[in-house]
């Protein structure tokens, strides 16, 4: 049975205010795909879903970039090298590989940035058309993984809401400009729902696929409990359909989601 396993923590680093990245190692992580997640045991009654920030399939290593928002994530962030994390992984539907000949925008907000870095790390090297990375944060101290992108040969465009780094504002304006130059483009995005709703609206009608990675409070993580749902099509007179973020996502095509209900 492919049950839970204990992955060894090989690296821990503070990457920004209240954000820690742990690199964990286990052979069962070899097949992980960008956009997928690990469901991590904590002392509470629920595991915590964390998407992969980087994946080294050969070594069976994956990164878990955690934002401390409550006791569960604080516990994960306090683990040390040499300890293990009990996890169910890899779970969920990750990103579909991008078309290497179509312009590609990767748009990340806050703790939504890590899965996009893993996508860039996996597929950026073979991308032939132009690519553009837009990273958003509330303030300079919260910008994530910009150096990682630079190390992987791409200069990300950084936006902060208070203007303390990069362009003042959100990822929305730079994306709008990119879309006007690249109507044949494809987009991957992950971030808060408000940001994804804007991305979804802006990308209506573009030629390439728009893949949105969602976050939701989760129960079992494997499709059984129907807790982590997101409003989806088809919408009926009495409400939307609900799809499971853990198994039908976390990555959805924009057409699958019912944004007026989210």
């Amino acid at each position: 049975m492919a049950g839970a396993f204990k992955a060894l923590i090989v690296t821990v680093r503070q990457v920004a205010l209240d954000h820690v990245e742990l690199i964990v190692e286990h052979e069962r992580l070899r097949d992980a795909t960008p956009g997928q997640f690990a469901h991590i045991l904590t002392p509470g009654t629920l595991r915590r879903p964390v998407s992969f920030s980087r994946i080294d399939g050969g070594l069976g290593r994956a990164g878990l970039l955690v934002q401390v928002v409550g006791p569960g994530t604080a516990w994960i962030a306090a683990r040390q090298v040499g300890e293990t994390l009990d996890m169910l992984a890899p779970l969920g539907r990750g990103f579909a590989p991008p078309d290497p000949d179509r312009p590609w925008a990767l748009v990340g907000g806050g703790v939504g940035i890590p899965p996009l870095f893993s996508a860039w790390e996996r597929w950026g090297w073979r991308h032939r058309a132009p690519a553009h990375v837009i990273l958003g944060a509330r303030k300079a101290a919260l910008v994530l993984m910009d150096a990682d992108f630079r190390q992987q040969a791409i200069e990300p465009l950084v936006t902060t809401e208070d203007g303390s780094r990069g362009i003042m504002g959100t990822v929305v304006d730079p994306l709008r400009q990119w879309l006007s130059r690249n109507p044949d483009g494809q987009v991957m995005a992950c971030g808060p729902n408000g940001m994804l709703a804007r991305v979804s609206a802006l990308t209506e009608g573009i030629a390439g696929p728009v893949q949105l990675a969602l976050e939701q409070r989760m129960g079992c993580g494997i499709g059984a409990c129907l807790a982590c749902v997101v409003p989806s099509v088809p919408v009926g007179p009495d409400g939307p359909g609900y799809r499971r973020v853990c198994t039908e996502g976390p990555v959805f095509q924009r057409e699958e989601l019912a944004w007026s209900w989210i």
Binding site: T45, Q216, G219, L226, A227, V229, G239, P240, Y242
Partner: peptide, 23 residues
């Protein structure tokens, strides 16, 4: 049955609150 709007789970001390709504 559609079930209830999310969020549908919330962790509490030694417990779990759910509002799935029998989807």
């Amino acid at each position: 049955w559609r079930g209830n709007p999310p969020p549908r789970v919330w962790e509490t001390p030694s417990g779990l609150l759910n509002s799935i709504g029998l989807q």
